[in-house]
Write a protein that binds this DNA or RNA. Structure first.
Lengths: 147, 147
DNA sequence: TAATGTCACTCACCAACTTAGTAATCTACT
DNA sequence: AGTAGATTACTAAGTTGGTGAGTGACATTA
């Protein structure tokens, strides 16, 4: 932790910090390039996993359902998503990603996933375990911050 | 990459994805708890490293200098930072973090750094190299996305 | 010393969020 | 079966934090 005397910072710790810093900066930069807001891109990324309703989408985004309603409006306006009425529950709407939305996400994210897959391939079986354990531990440490 | 057929997702890859997802969610949650905007918290974290001018702060935040001027206003309003005139350059203002600001950051971030230090301590010398190399590689992959 | 560049700031405007409230529909209780 | 309470999606109005354009003070360069 730079600026705090008495904190001995290891190589892994500073590498992790840099990763986190970058991963916080990425969404806004990538969204800008795609002509979307960060919430729209975040929604699109989540919609790749399957349809979801506006209320659940709001929980994913960490915003109110009123806000997510507007996000879906804009996504539909861009042609990146569609609203479908839920079969069996008349209140629900399902938001479904379109081919256009899918293409947008893939265009932006594929290069990264290819690099990561290549990086992953350089790890031995044992290395993979070490790295995974570290990543899970770091994730847990950050999750605690949010409670 | 969930939702994309033909993507074999490894344990490390999914762990990394979760880490990135969490690290993207953390700032807004933590900032809310501190009664600050994400930009204010981000600025405060950077100000721990030393004084900086509004224009450079804007570059760090990825916003215009007009916006960072407002950020500094609010930080000063909260008592978390001060403006100092730069000695030797009459145009410049230096933004300096106050004890209040420092305390705010430490209160929010210390638990995480303690967890991470503990996690780090469980790594052998060789493990540390493996993990660092992976983190640096992942960081590079994400940086490419921004270019 | 004149021209150009940089820094911090202000102003008007805009996008994306919030809170508050509505109508439609589903669920549970008696 | 009928009604009270939840839940879902949405709308309206207000707030916040950003942008783009432009200003004055000071610094740097030709």
């Amino acid at each position: 932790m730079p600026g705090v005397p008495g904190w001995r910072t290891t190589a892994t710790l500073s590498a992790l910090q840099e990763l986190v810093e970058v991963s916080e900066a990425v969404p806004s930069v990538v969204a800008r390039k795609a002509g979307l807001s960060t919430s729209e891109l975040h929604s699109l990324r989540h919609l790749m996993r399957g349809p979801i309703g506006p209320v659940d989408l709001a929980k994913v985004l960490g915003v109110t359902s009123a806000a997510s309603s507007g996000v879906v409006d804009r996504l539909v306006g861009h042609g990146h998503a569609e609203r479908r009425s839920h079969p069996g529950d008349g209140r629900r709407t399902e938001v479904v990603i379109t081919d256009s939305g899918r293409a947008e996400v893939l265009a932006r994210m594929t290069p990264m996933f290819e690099s990561l897959a290549a990086l992953d391939a350089t790890l031995s079986e044992g290395d993979r375990d070490v790295v995974e354990r570290y990543l899970r531990g770091a994730t847990a440490a950050m999750k605690n911050l949010m409670t």
